[in-house]
């Protein structure tokens, strides 16, 4: 039980996220209105994805240093749950776009599709999609683990340029894009007041821990399957 304290922490943080996220006061901003509360859910998916991809990257390096097969399984499971969170982030983003970017300021669907952060996130997810295809295309276990670990390092190296650096250079519809004062195309720091931060940071930790929990379940299942296969 004492080993699973972080699972309980994740549970409590997410309960807190929902209660405080819906009930606490948020800044009254035009266009965004109440949808600013999506910060506690949509943005957390992307943060969780980046952290899980980071963990996957770490285990890929660890695999290449030690050649222990279990690290390849770790890297694969963290990357797959990370991609899943990324897809959830994408889907929730679509819903948010509908009420903030398209209806206002005569933005059309065309201008939304040109949004570099959207394209960058799509590229990043597709690169990770290729990781899973590549990994499944090998029949030789050793070759599979080695090639996919190398590829995973490349995928992680592409992640931050495509979702952070390029949108920062060319401008973005996301709040706080170049031209505004903060120059950080994800969230405008000035839009967040102290009470929002009090919910946002715990929410990021809570969602990430939930992602880690699901990843560990996937890992344990894969290891079990591996054990059964080797016993037969």
């Amino acid at each position: 039980m004492n080993k699973s304290w972080w699972k309980i922490l994740s549970f409590l943080l997410l309960i807190y996220t929902i209660i405080a996220g819906f009930l606490c006061n948020v800044p009254r901003l035009p266009i965004l209105n109440e949808t600013i509360r999506n910060l506690y859910f949509h943005v957390c998916m992307w943060f969780g994805m980046m952290i899980l991809f980071g963990v996957s990257f770490y285990y890929s390096i660890k695999y290449l240093r030690t050649f222990q097969f279990k690290y390849d399984i770790y890297a694969h499971c963290f990357a797959s749950v990370g991609s899943f969170m990324g897809i959830l982030g994408y889907l929730t983003g679509f819903l948010w776009v509908n009420v903030t970017w398209i209806t206002d300021q005569s933005q059309s669907i065309g201008s939304v599709l040109k949004e570099p952060k959207l394209i960058g996130a799509a590229i990043a997810l597709l690169i990770y999609g290729a990781y899973f295809v590549l990994r499944d295309s090998f029949t030789d276990m050793d070759k599979r683990a080695r090639t996919s670990a190398v590829y995973n390092i490349f995928a992680f190296a592409m992640l931050f340029p495509s979702i952070w650096i390029i949108p920062r250079i060319v401008g973005s519809l996301h709040p706080g894009a170049p031209g505004s004062d903060s120059g950080n195309p994800a969230l405008d720091r000035k839009d967040l007041d102290a009470s929002m931060r009090m919910v946002f940071y715990p929410a990021v930790i809570g969602w990430t821990l939930l992602g880690v929990w699901i990843s560990t379940l996937k890992i344990r299942l894969s290891l079990l399957k591996d054990k059964i296969d080797s016993n037969e």
């Binding site: 699972k7 997410l14 309960i15 929902i18 819906f22 929990w213 379940l217």
Partner: peptide, 20 residues
Amino acid sequence: VVAVCLTILIGLFLYVFLID
């Protein structure tokens, strides 16, 4: 709304816990 979301969240966590 909060009660509905909490129910879903608790249900999801219960499910993950049982799989665990």
